[in-house]
C-alpha cells in the first residue's frame, strides 16, 4: 500500500472516532435538555404562587416597606452573580454570558461603584481568575443539574451580604432559555427588589377581613428572601437548560463537520487507491510490452 493511501486511511479512522464521541455527547445533551426543561416547568407553579402571595400582601397592607425593597442612597458596591458552566464544549454559551457579565461590570464601574463578583461554574471562575479579577464567592459542580438546596445556599449568602452592606445592589448574568433554538444571555437586577415586581398590576379586591399570621411585616421578612432564592433557582435552571441546548448544538455541528470530512477523505483515499492500481497496470503493461519487444527481436 502506498504511503499516501495509508495516511488518508489513518485520518479517516481518527475523524470517525471523534465523530462517535461528539455524536454521543449530542445525544446526552438532548436528553438532558428535556429533563432540564421539565425542571423549569416544575418550578413554575411555586414561583407563580409565591409572587401572588406577595402581591396580595402588598395590596392588603398598602405601601410595603422592607430593606430588600429599598434603593440605597449612596451605593458603593454592586454584586454581580455570573452563571456559567463547569464544562466547555458548549459553543459560545460561556463566552456569551461572560460578555454580558463584562458589560454589567462596566456599567457598574461607570456609575462609580465597585463590582463584587459571585461566580458559579468552573468556566467563569477560570475566566475571572485568569484576568486577576477577585471573586467574593465561587461555586462549582452544580451547573448541569442544579439542586434546590444549592440555590437556597447561594441565595442566602447573597441576601446576607446585602443585609451586611457588603453589596448595595445585585445583578445576575445568566442565559435565558427561550427555546432549544433561542438562548439569550441576559442580565437582571435581583436586589434591591423592584417594588413593582412585588405589587404586581395593583388591581384587585382589597378584602377587609384579610388575615395574616404572624404580622405582615414578619411574613415579609421571610417572603422576600424566599422570593430572591426562587429567582436564583430559576436562573440556575434556565442556565442549565441553556447549557445543554448550546452543547447539543455545538456537538451536532461537530458531528456534521466530521461527516463532511469523512466524505472528502474517503474520496481522496479512493483516488489514491485508483492511482495506485493504474500505476500498477501501467507497470505490468509496460513490462509485458518490453518483454514482447525483446522476444520478437
Amino acid at each position: 500500500m502506498g504511503a499516501q493511501l495509508r495516511i488518508v486511511r489513518r485520518r479517516i479512522r481518527t475523524v470517525q472516532s471523534t465523530k462517535k464521541i461528539t455524536r454521543a455527547m449530542e445525544l446526552i445533551a438532548s436528553s438532558r435538555i428535556v429533563k432540564a426543561q421539565q425542571r423549569v416547568e416544575a418550578s413554575r407553579p411555586y414561583a407563580i404562587q409565591l409572587t401572588k402571595a406577595m402581591e396580595d400582601l402588598a395590596r392588603q397592607t398598602g405601601a410595603v416597606q422592607h430593606p430588600l425593597l429599598e434603593d440605597r442612597e449612596e451605593p458603593t458596591k454592586a454584586g454581580v452573580l455570573v452563571l456559567t458552566s463547569d464544562r466547555g464544549l458548549a459553543g459560545a454559551y460561556n463566552a456569551n454570558v461572560l460578555k454580558v457579565a463584562e458589560s454589567v461590570i462596566r456599567e457598574v464601574r461607570s456609575r462609580g461603584l465597585e463590582p463584587v463578583l459571585y461566580t458559579i461554574g468552573k468556566k467563569g471562575i477560570g475566566y475571572f481568575r485568569f484576568r486577576g479579577i477577585p471573586m467574593r464567592e465561587r461555586w462549582q459542580g452544580i451547573s448541569e443539574v442544579p439542586p434546590y438546596e444549592e440555590a437556597e445556599r447561594i441565595g442566602r449568602t447573597l441576601i446576607k451580604d446585602f443585609a451586611d452592606e457588603e453589596i448595595d445592589e445585585l445583578y445576575a448574568a445568566y442565559t435565558d432559555f427561550r427555546s432549544a433554538f433561542t438562548l439569550r444571555a441576559t442580565a437582571q437586577r435581583f436586589l434591591p427588589i423592584a417594588p413593582e415586581e412585588v405589587t404586581g398590576k395593583g388591581l384587585g379586591v382589597v378584602h377587609a377581613e384579610y388575615l395574616f399570621e404572624p404580622e405582615p411585616d414578619e411574613i415579609l421578612d421571610h417572603l422576600l428572601p424566599q422570593y430572591v432564592v426562587t429567582k436564583v433557582y430559576a436562573a440556575l435552571l434556565e442556565s442549565a437548560a441553556s447549557e445543554n441546548a448550546a452543547r447539543r448544538r455545538a456537538m451536532k455541528a461537530a458531528t456534521d463537520n466530521a461527516e463532511d470530512l469523512i466524505k472528502i477523505l474517503t474520496r481522496q483515499a479512493n483516488r489514491a487507491r485508483q492511482d495506485e492500481i493504474t500505476t500498477e497496470i501501467m507497470e505490468i503493461v509496460g513490462g509485458a510490452e518490453s518483454m514482447a519487444a525483446v522476444s520478437e527481436g
Partner: peptide
C-alpha cells in the same frame, strides 16, 4: 369559604 389568609 375561609377569609383570605397568609400564614407563615
Amino acid at each position: 369559604g375561609h377569609a383570605p389568609l397568609l400564614v407563615h
